[in-house]
Amino acid sequence: MTVAATPTATSVVSLEINGEAVELEVPSSRLLVHLIRDDLDLTGTHIGCDTGNCGACTVHVDGVPVKSCMMLAVQAQGTRITTVEGLAPDGELTPLQQAFSAAHALQCGYCTPGMLMSASALLEQNQSPSEEEIKVALQGNICRCTGYWNIVEAVQEAAKGGAA
């Protein structure tokens, strides 16, 4: 059964993830984050709070950041998804990722995939964000280690270097 107008307990979902087309059958109750982590083994996307507050599970769906724990996998039918693995597909860190490293914008690193996805979405829309705009863009991402200053600084540095 594909996603259709008749209610079903499982659905075949086809989507594009990090440039690759995938199609798999999932229970309709499955969260997108579980499809990404458990079915596709892309474990860079983290589960922090599982209640939509922490943003560790942030991915891009059709180019905009969303929390993948607050979306069903079936809702992603036909979408184009980018996870943190998709930022640097050839393994070389992007300027934003390098800036996170240089500015010590992570400590334990658990929130970092979500931070990177929110920050990269911002930089795609706005190449020279103000400090305030960076803070608003990262409002949905919680970090318990850094106190945020270094993260904001990393995004500023990446923007100065022309990162997107």
Partner: peptide, 25 residues
């Protein structure tokens, strides 16, 4: 987190959506 089993439909018209909401308890 695992959700309780649920059925899912994605109608393509408002009429279909209303029919689904009406027909299914």
């Amino acid at each position: 987190m695992l959700l309780r089993e649920v059925e899912y439909a994605r109608p393509s018209t408002i009429e279909e959506a209303v029919a689904l909401l009406t027909e299914h308890d």
